[in-house]
């Protein structure tokens, strides 16, 4: 439903508001990099605006902090609906390496709903464009959860049942010859 809504409403352009709630500035620089002529995000109609009231998309950098929590929530409420929130960087996605610090509340999704996550510290400008392209449905996302389950003990366990006679020798079957 969100996807349909996106395509209908944002068909031509996304105006982004850039909110830093306490990151280290690394992600800000990468976001600005995206807006330079080399990466040229205006190809997708992306335009940086100075006020959340003009924006469709909020780019969040930095974790949810005790000191900026209220301001971030107010900026989110000021955005007209429909609105999208991108969490850029590992700080915004999961709290970063300061997730257990006294002033950090955790990921920004603790304060405002997040629609897309772009992990990285900082993410490459290409990764940010990729995230936007995923949101615009230009490309498919590449990640899927990985689960690995061993079904058999990988170390050969000595068991008398696996001993077998070969001529004059008794050989342990399961040991691989070196």
């Amino acid at each position: 439903m969100l996807k349909n809504l996106c395509q209908k409403m944002f068909g031509r352009s996304l105006w982004v508001y850039h909110a830093n709630s306490g990151g280290c500035n690394g992600c800000d620089i990468e976001v600005l990099n995206v807006l330079t002529p080399y990466y040229d995000a205006e190809r997708f109609g992306i335009k940086l605006v100075g006020s959340p009231r003009h924006a469709d998309v909020m780019l969040c950098q930095g974790p949810a902090m005790r000191s900026t929590a209220k301001a971030l929530q107010r900026a989110y409420e000021a955005m007209p609906a429909p609105k999208l929130v991108f969490a850029i960087g590992s700080c915004a996605c999961g709290g970063g390496i300061w997730f257990d610090s006294y002033s950090v509340l955790g990921p920004v999704e603790k304060l405002i709903p997040v629609n897309y996550y772009i992990p990285g510290c900082p993410p490459r400008p290409e990764a940010i464009i990729y995230g936007v392209a995923v949101a615009l449905d230009l490309v498919d996302k590449k990640t899927a959860p990985v689960q690995f389950k061993q079904t058999e003990l990988p170390i050969p366990r000595y068991h008398p049942a696996d001993l077998e006679g070969q001529g004059e020798m008794v050989v342990y079957k399961k040991i691989e010859p070196v």
Partner: peptide, 22 residues
């Protein structure tokens, strides 16, 4: 060299290993 990890659900980037231990 994977950096295109953008996703709409954060669970997509986790990896889980169930290991046998001796």
């Amino acid at each position: 060299h994977e950096f295109e990890n953008a996703t709409n659900s954060i669970g997509d980037i986790q990896q889980k290993l169930d290991l046998f231990m001796s």
